[in-house]
């Protein structure tokens, strides 16, 4: 083995990498929030929507779940170019992740809603609750409990998937790493440090999720 590891230049760049890590988190969280909103809509449309909308929702979910995330990103990046629509790298990653998250989350939400028996709605309504009260107080808490862990997983995935941003020129954690690595040729060292940062980010998310879960699901 005649390779000399040079960690010094990498360690000097750690502040920049951590900052890029924040950008990774930002895009992951944003795509997650958008994904939850759209995913809820898709799940409801698939269960109760009129036929054409239901088919659109089903198509969305199946494409998101059955093609590679990288393909979806390329589609938003290059495919839309065919229609003269050119998104910035940030928007490409955000759109791609949101599309993917929404598809997976919609399926989770649907499973959650189907797990709450219809009779509970009728029971709540006959106790005098309004439709909104029924959803907020009876359905949502139960669904949340079922979809909470899949949602945490999806959040972790969103962070991991955002690394694909480096292939469309987005300077989040991976993109920034690649940028520095190609400047110094310390590819292995840079990506090793980045791997550690990703690992820490994922662990923090899981820890936070566990803490919140303990508070949410005390009963």
């Amino acid at each position: 083995m005649d390779y000399n590891f040079h960690w010094r230049p990498v360690l000097r760049k750690i502040p920049e990498l951590l900052e890029a890590g924040l950008l990774t988190l930002e895009v992951a969280v944003l795509s997650m929030l958008l994904g939850i909103a759209i995913g809820l809509g898709l799940a409801l449309l698939r269960m109760k929507g009129p036929t054409p909308l239901r088919q659109i929702a089903t198509t969305w979910v199946e494409i998101a779940r059955n093609t590679p995330a990288l393909f979806q990103l390329f589609f938003f990046g290059f495919g839309l170019g065919a229609f003269g629509l050119h998104l910035s790298p940030y928007l490409i990653v955000l759109a791609g992740l949101t599309f993917n998250n929404a598809g997976y989350l919609a399926e989770n939400f649907r499973g959650g809603f189907l797990a709450v028996p219809e009779t509970q709605v009728r029971a709540a309504r006959s106790l005098g609750m309004t439709a909104i009260q029924t959803y907020v107080r009876i359905i949502i808490p139960q669904v949340l409990k079922i979809v909470y862990h899949p949602m945490t997983n999806q959040m972790v995935w969103a962070v991991l998937m955002s690394s694909l941003g480096m292939l469309v020129g987005f300077r989040e954690l991976s993109g920034e790493t690649q940028f520095f690595a190609s400047k110094t040729y310390r590819i292995f060292e840079y990506f090793a440090v980045t791997a550690v940062i990703y690992y820490i980010i994922v662990k923090i998310i899981l820890l936070a999720s566990n803490l919140v879960a303990r508070r949410l699901f005390r009963y």
């Binding site: 991991l160 690394s163 991976s174 590819i187 292995f188 791997a195 990703y198 690992y199 994922v202």
Partner: peptide, 17 residues
Amino acid sequence: SVPLIIQLILFYNFFPI
């Protein structure tokens, strides 16, 4: 817990080492 793309680049550059 580490993105697959990072793993790929990491190992691809590690094997020659």
